[in-house]
């Protein structure tokens, strides 16, 4: 299915968020995730089933003021 990952369309085979992160190469532990604007805690990633067109945001620490 196709989902939107950080604003880019991506085709994935995974069904859950946890699997999709691995498939997409997000292996760092210093990331946080949201789907369709809703925060998904780390513990819940394995249980979240993705749907066609979901907007996934993967954020990481960055410089800030």
């Amino acid at each position: 299915m196709q989902i939107i990952v950080n604003q880019n369309p991506r085709d994935i085979r995974s069904e859950t968020l946890g699997e999709a992160l691995t498939e997409l190469g997000f292996t760092s532990t210093a990331i946080a995730t949201a789907i369709n604007g809703r925060f998904i805690p780390r513990d819940a990633r394995a249980d979240v089933i993705l749907a066609e067109g979901d907007r996934l945001e993967v954020l990481a620490p960055m410089q800030g003021g």
């Binding site: 950080n6 997000f26 990331i31 954020l59 990481a60 620490p61 960055m62 410089q63 800030g64 003021g65």
Partner: peptide, 21 residues
């Protein structure tokens, strides 16, 4: 110190900054 969150790239660029900080 203040920090922010930004979109991660698959190469894990954010983790390096976090380690420094």
């Amino acid at each position: 110190v203040t920090v922010s969150l930004r979109r991660e790239t698959a190469d894990g660029s954010g983790a390096g900054f976090w380690d420094v900080l």
